[in-house]
Design a protein around this nucleic acid. Structure first.
Lengths: 199, 199
DNA sequence: GCGCTGACCTACTCCCGGTAACTTACCGCC
DNA sequence: GGCGGTAAGTTACCGGGAGTAGGTCAGCGC
């Protein structure tokens, strides 16, 4: 009987499936980010959502299914963020710098979300996230690559670039005092010379 | 009373703690490699070792404790493998190629062990493994870097190089037909130009 | 022989992912 | 308006795995 009504109250009682789904994904992202995959419990998610477990299992099939659904949104947000930043530039160097900076900013501002994306290399979910990121970079590179470049070599370069930035992100978390722009510059200086061949 | 006697039989009955410890770490590495951390069960390890669970918990405290102990050995082996290969060369380019090749070979020949090392970025165990690998590369780079190079920049480069190779390893698993030497060459060509500054 | 210590086991507890079977609110239709 | 049918949700459970309390049993010093 409160006038207030917290957000969750909107979803109390019976609600169409797609709404429940979005709500659960949202709460799932929070919970997984707080606790990590292993320590997040489905019972707790159910409690937070004001629902019982079978509802979640009806919608997502399993804990991993829910996790995938949560990753989906995160991965899309990250990829869009990077693609937008990179495509705003034309020159290869500016593209690399802008894309890399966007990535590092995302990792810096959404550390929990980022780590969620890569939790468990063994899980094919994380593997597919990495593949998609590399595919994005590959696409961006292909838009500028001259004809005659070996396709496999380009793919390998894309994977290497992607992972190199991941490594930089890890260093960044250990050194929060170093400005992200400087990191982006260093990484460009390291990678660009070897990438000139592809432009 | 069999003449045969499988290896485990040596450890049956009462045995000094350090021996049990080594045996459990060894069997643990196998089990974790087979199933991954999450799906490996302590009951099964106990069964394989011919011991009961409390023995394991007495020695390692928790499942994660055992996991750490297993990682320790793996990480050391990997690091030694790379350091030996790299230090056998003098020229920067040859070092990078040799070290990188050693890494890729390890990842190729011991995929399970490798993935074990990085299972779960969130787990601080994996994070510390990555840090140590980067530290090794940093050390190798420092042995050749001229004075006056910014220390932070060198560290970032080491992390980037390390992770770049991780990314290449992932691509490699998706393309087992491509010879590892070619991958090593491509990666050297990509990274070396940007590293010349540090040599 | 006697007790003490170190190696090991029995027999649990609790938590968590997952499920089978049942109940309730709502919506269209006569 | 009431009445079925279905979408939405619940209760009450199972199995398995991490972790533990407390007991057993062999050997060694004395």
């Amino acid at each position: 009987m409160e006038a207030a009504g917290r957000i969750e109250d909107f979803q109390h009682g019976r609600v169409p499936r797609p709404v429940r789904e979005r709500q659960l994904v949202e709460l799932g992202e929070e919970l997984f980010a707080e606790r990590g995959f292993a320590k997040a419990s489905m019972d707790e998610l159910a409690r937070r959502a004001g629902v019982t477990k079978p509802v979640i299992y009806e919608l997502f099939g399993s804990k991993e299914g829910l996790f995938r659904a949560c990753l989906e949104g995160l991965a899309l947000r990250l990829a869009d963020h990077i693609a937008d930043a990179a495509r705003a530039e034309d020159e290869p160097e500016a593209r690399l710098r802008a894309g890399g900076l966007a990535f590092l900013r995302f990792a810096s501002d959404n550390r929990m979300a980022y780590e969620l994306l890569y939790e468990g290399r063994f899980s094919d979910a994380a593997v597919s996230v990495r593949r998609r990121q590399a595919a994005l970079i590959l696409e961006l590179m292909r838009e500028m690559a001259p004809a005659g470049v070996d396709s496999h070599e380009l793919e390998v370069a894309a994977h290497a670039v992607n992972s190199a930035y991941e490594g930089v992100a890890h260093w960044m978390w250990d050194h929060p005092d170093v400005p992200v722009e400087r990191l982006a510059d260093w990484t460009v200086e390291l990678l660009l010379p070897g990438l000139r061949r592809f432009t």
